[in-house]
Simulated assay, not measured.
Amino acid sequence: MKAMILAAGRGERMRPLTDHLPKPLIPVAGRPLIGWHLAALKAAGIDEIVINTGWLGDRLHQQLGDGRAFGLSIAWSDEGWPALETGGGIHHALPLLGAEPFLLVNGDVWTDVPLAALADRARTLPAQDLAHLVLVPNPPHHPRGDFGLAGGRMIPACAESFTFSGLSVLRPELFADCTAGAFPLAPLLRDAAIRGRVSAELHAGQWLDVGTPERLAALESLLSPNQEQAR
């Protein structure tokens, strides 16, 4: 079982903090933000991790190396700058991810989604499904949401939409018709959902998009009393 962490973005809304530090290395409650993901993936039994890089990617290499210090194996998918957006970045990393469904984790979110259960979903993903998404209730900064949900299936357009958490299971075949370059992931998911090939679930637990200094401070407050524990 492999997982990919998206870590190539610039973090514009976090400037000037991210002018000299890649967003995944921003410290939160005693460890870099990406360290929370690595600890959670290891606890879920997932030890093969692919990380894409773009902005200040060399800093990520220096900090994390090959992953052995974390009990993991890290493979790097370097994109340079500007990076390739979500879809293009995943497509670029496919040779490192293999042929089986894999977990995708957005590097700038934090959540208590049980990754072991998501890994089980990857192992049992029906052959016809190209993806499984974890959705969350819409936060104040994203009130309109992204996708609908009905009967365990993702609905591209719906009266009630939820926010994509940044966690999912993807099958490499989702990218079968793609070519190299920069492109977003969302249109691929919508197209697959129109064809009835995307399942989804709603997570009602904790979730934060660490996209601004204010939300970073909120996460620091949430985690500081429990910083010795992985989520």
Rank of each mutant, 00 (worst) to 15 (best):
K2A: 14
M4L: 13
I5L: 08
I5F: 00
A8C: 03
G9Q: 13
G9T: 11
P16D: 09
D19C: 02
L21G: 09
P22K: 14
I26M: 14
G30L: 05
L33T: 10
H37T: 04
A39F: 04
A40P: 05
A40H: 13
K42N: 04
A43E: 02
D47W: 03
I51E: 01
T53H: 09
T53K: 13
W55L: 03
G57L: 06
D58T: 05
R59V: 05
R59W: 12
A69M: 11
S73V: 03
S77Y: 02
G80F: 04
T86L: 12
G88E: 13
I90M: 01
H91Q: 08
A99P: 00
A99V: 09
A99Y: 13
E100D: 12
P101V: 00
L104E: 00
G107F: 08
G107L: 05
T111M: 12
T111P: 14
A116N: 04
A117I: 09
D120A: 02
R121N: 06
R121A: 00
A122Y: 04
T124Y: 06
P126S: 13
P126T: 10
A127L: 04
Q128P: 09
L133V: 09
L133E: 01
P139L: 06
G145Q: 10
D146F: 13
G151M: 12
G152F: 06
A157P: 03
E160K: 10
E160S: 14
G166H: 15
L167K: 05
V169P: 00
L170Y: 07
C178K: 05
T179Y: 01
G181Y: 02
A193M: 00
A200Y: 03
L202K: 12
Q206Y: 03
D209A: 15
A217K: 15
E220N: 07
A230R: 12
A230V: 07
A230G: 10
